Simulated assay, not measured.
Amino acid sequence: MLTPIVEDKVVVELKAVVKLEDAHLAQGKNYTVAYDFPRGLLINFGGRSLEYKLLFNPKYN
């Protein structure tokens, strides 16, 4: 699976589920930490309305 990176600044995780759950948040945060980016964005297109979460990397230098 390809994890999009926008302008070498933000990791973007796209989902199409009814509702975001803690596991989705953990996965997005793990990608942000693994790629060593300060921020990540989790976007869900599967619900009744667009749902998004801004994620922060606590280990970023």
Rank of each mutant, 00 (worst) to 15 (best):
R39F: 14
K53E: 03
V33R: 09
L41S: 11
L2Q: 09
L14W: 07
V6H: 14
V6N: 11
K9G: 08
Y31V: 02
E7K: 14
F45A: 11
L20H: 11
K29Q: 13
V12K: 10
L55T: 09
Y31E: 08
E51R: 06
Y31C: 01
D8V: 00
A23K: 15
D36S: 06
R39H: 14
G40R: 02
E21D: 12
E21V: 13
A26Y: 14
V17C: 05
A34Q: 10
L54D: 13
D22W: 03
D8H: 08
K19E: 14
L55R: 10
N61E: 06
H24I: 01
I43W: 03
I43P: 04
L54A: 12
Y31N: 12
E21S: 12
A26G: 06
H24V: 00
N30P: 03
V6G: 09
L14M: 07
L55H: 14
N44T: 01
V10K: 14
G40K: 02
G47R: 03
K53R: 15
L55C: 11
V18L: 07
K15D: 00
V10M: 14
K29G: 03
T32G: 08
L25P: 04
V10F: 11
K29C: 02
A34C: 02
V17D: 05
K59A: 04
N61I: 02
A23E: 15
E21K: 15
L2G: 04
V12G: 08
V17L: 06
N57W: 02
V11N: 11
L54M: 14
Y52S: 13
D8Q: 09
A16D: 06
R48A: 10
H24F: 07
K29P: 01
E21G: 12
K53D: 01
G47V: 03
L42G: 03
G46E: 05
K59T: 01
V10H: 14
N44R: 02
V10T: 15
